[in-house]
Amino acid sequence: MTSPEFTNPTTVDAATLRDLLTTGGDLRVLDVRTPGEFETAHIPGAYNVPLDLLREHRAELRAHLDDQVVLVCRSGARATQAGQTLAEVGLPNVKILDGGMLAWQHTDAPVNRGRSRWDLERQVRLVAGVIVLSSVLGSLLLPGLQWVAALMGAGLTVAALTNTCAMGMLLAKLPYNRGTASCDLTTIVGQLRETGARR
């Protein structure tokens, strides 16, 4: 159930976020993309808290998020889902980076870069396209296989209507998307405590 306070999330544009980060206020930027996407490019000082981990451990994370929070993903969809999740545990005043990392990079704001990987949305498009193309071409040899393409179309329709993506959640668990850095609850809470103690 979506929290009533989060039906219209507050957004912050890239230029405003950049100003907030340079003034050094009590602001935490949580990047909810996969560790692989985070390693490819992220906002300096951001914490990587993948969406699936945030959903599973929202109450534990909430205990360490009493400051201003800005949520970031590639374009804003996953950050909005993360905001709804945090609102359910009593943190409704989070902000979403409008346009996500795409908008941040478009303004030539500083970015920490690592090994380049495809973002999750691109991977979903590739897998969905391969499944549809293979099932349509395969139906020339095995009649009825085109129904796999129809099921994929239905799944993509549901994903669009619900603003969720089961295929994306599955792909996020692949080693390719896990990255090399440790991204578990203990590590994230330790990072949040460490920076909180320095303030």
Rank of each mutant, 00 (worst) to 15 (best):
S3H: 06
P4Y: 06
E5T: 10
F6R: 03
T7I: 14
V12N: 08
D13F: 11
A15V: 13
T16L: 09
T16M: 09
T16W: 05
L21I: 10
T22E: 12
L27E: 07
L27Y: 12
V29N: 05
D31L: 04
D31R: 04
R33C: 11
R33P: 06
R33Q: 11
R33T: 08
G36Q: 05
E37H: 08
A41W: 04
H42T: 09
G45N: 04
Y47M: 09
V49D: 00
L51A: 06
D52W: 05
R58I: 02
R62C: 08
H64Y: 10
D67E: 13
V70K: 01
G76M: 02
A79T: 03
A82L: 05
A82Q: 01
T85S: 06
A87I: 00
G90W: 02
K95I: 08
I96R: 02
L97F: 06
G99F: 03
G100T: 01
Q105H: 13
T107W: 14
A109D: 04
P110G: 08
G114R: 04
G114F: 05
S116T: 11
V124Q: 00
V127H: 04
V132M: 15
L137R: 08
L140H: 09
L141H: 12
P143T: 00
G144I: 05
G144F: 07
Q146S: 07
Q146P: 02
V148S: 04
A149Q: 09
M152Q: 13
G153R: 10
A154V: 13
A154G: 13
L156M: 14
V158W: 02
A160K: 14
L161I: 09
T162E: 01
T162P: 00
T162H: 00
N163V: 01
T164L: 00
C165V: 01
A166P: 00
A172G: 13
Y176A: 06
N177D: 15
G179M: 14
S182C: 15
S182T: 15
D184K: 05
T186C: 05
T187I: 04
T187M: 06
G190T: 12
Q191R: 11
R193P: 03
T195D: 07
A197K: 15
A197E: 14
